[in-house]
Design a protein around this nucleic acid. Structure first.
Length: 305
DNA sequence: AGATACCCCTGTTAGC
DNA sequence: TGCTAACAGGGGTATC
């Protein structure tokens, strides 16, 4: 079984969980990190992190791709999170005992505590200055302000972002000889897609994952982006994808989308569309599952919805 | 600037 | 049964 990681639907589920409970609350205390990697991008380390955060009011819970940030009152700073592979943001009552793999705990002025847990420490949190977006549109979901945390400028808008420049993304893809699977995972082209939803979107689009991106027509690519967005929206309705307790929402509940997956984690099992055993290959170092009948390597391709 | 290789980390699984 | 090696994954960094 594959390892779950938070992709756009999982991070958005968490963003929505947090939004209603963190908005306009204040951080009153921060515990020291139990692992240095959780704060590895914080200039000035924990003392600076603590200094900026404590006493600030939380004015938004925002997201672009897999990055989350909370706009802070006062000096134009944002409190940022990336959950990596195993990061969790849990909302618990005050005085809740230490959770497993707990890295940092934040006390709020509403009687709750926000706990950052991360088994594999690929996730991180830090405070960053907010900077204007290059296109003047809102920084991401959950904010109306055209601001983005410094250092995240290389993260493209995501597939659910109404300000996504679809024509620009298609042009980039058309210009690349790399596998379309690889390009879907490239957060600098379009963000939010990880290994689960890349395979799901390609299967639903009828596209062989190793196809050079530039071999696909503009129509194929626009269709692929739309289908990726619709898979994400559907996963969001299920609260995301969980295989075990590595991905849970802020209340500790798993997502229910795993049973809806068509290909990810199903190598060798029967294709749910045609019954043929699904192939598992490696593309640019990433496990890739696809159906050689529904998404064959060469034309003609039979589109399926 | 695009492509590529490598690194970080740890629980689970595969293989001997 | 018990050990080791491989594997899973996103993104930052370095190098060409």
């Amino acid at each position: 079984m594959g390892i779950p990681m938070p992709e756009l639907p999982e991070v958005e589920t968490i963003r929505r969980n947090l939004g209603s409970h963190l908005m306009n609350t204040c951080v009153t205390a921060v515990s020291p990190p139990t692992h240095p990697r959780s704060l590895r991008f914080q200039p000035g380390g924990f003392s600076r992190f603590h200094e900026v955060l404590v006493g600030k009011q939380l004015e938004s819970v925002s997201r672009r791709g897999k990055f989350l940030w909370l706009e802070l009152s006062g000096d134009g700073a944002a409190w940022c999170f990336h959950l990596g592979m195993s990061g969790q943001l849990r909302l618990v009552a005050e005085d809740t005992p230490v959770l497993s793999h707990e890295r940092l705990r934040f006390t709020l002025d509403n009687g709750m505590e926000l706990v950052f847990c991360d088994q594999r420490t690929f996730g991180h949190t830090e405070v960053r200055a907010l900077e204007p977006t290059v296109d003047g549109a809102p920084g991401g979901a959950g904010t109306a302000r055209a601001l983005l945390p410094a250092g995240l400028g290389h993260i493209a808008r995501d597939v659910l972002d109404p300000s996504l420049d679809v024509a620009g993304v298609v042009a980039k893809l058309r210009n690349s000889r790399r596998a379309i699977k690889t390009k879907l995972l490239d957060q600098g082209t379009v963000s939010g897609i990880g290994n689960i939803y890349a395979d799901e979107a390609l299967f639903a689009s009828g596209i062989y994952p190793a196809t050079p991106a530039g071999d696909l027509s503009g129509t194929d690519l626009r269709n692929l982006l739309e289908i990726a967005a619709s898979v994400m929206r559907r996963a969001l309705e299920f609260g995301g994808t969980s295989f075990d307790q590595l991905y849970v929402d802020s209340w500790g509940n798993p997502g229910d989308f795993a049973s809806e997956l068509q290909v990810y984690g199903r190598g060798g099992q029967a294709c749910r569309h045609c019954g043929q055993a699904l192939d598992k290959i490696v593309i640019d170092g990433r496990a890739t599952v696809f159906c050689a009948r529904c998404t064959p390597a060469s034309p003609p391709r039979n589109k399926k919805g």
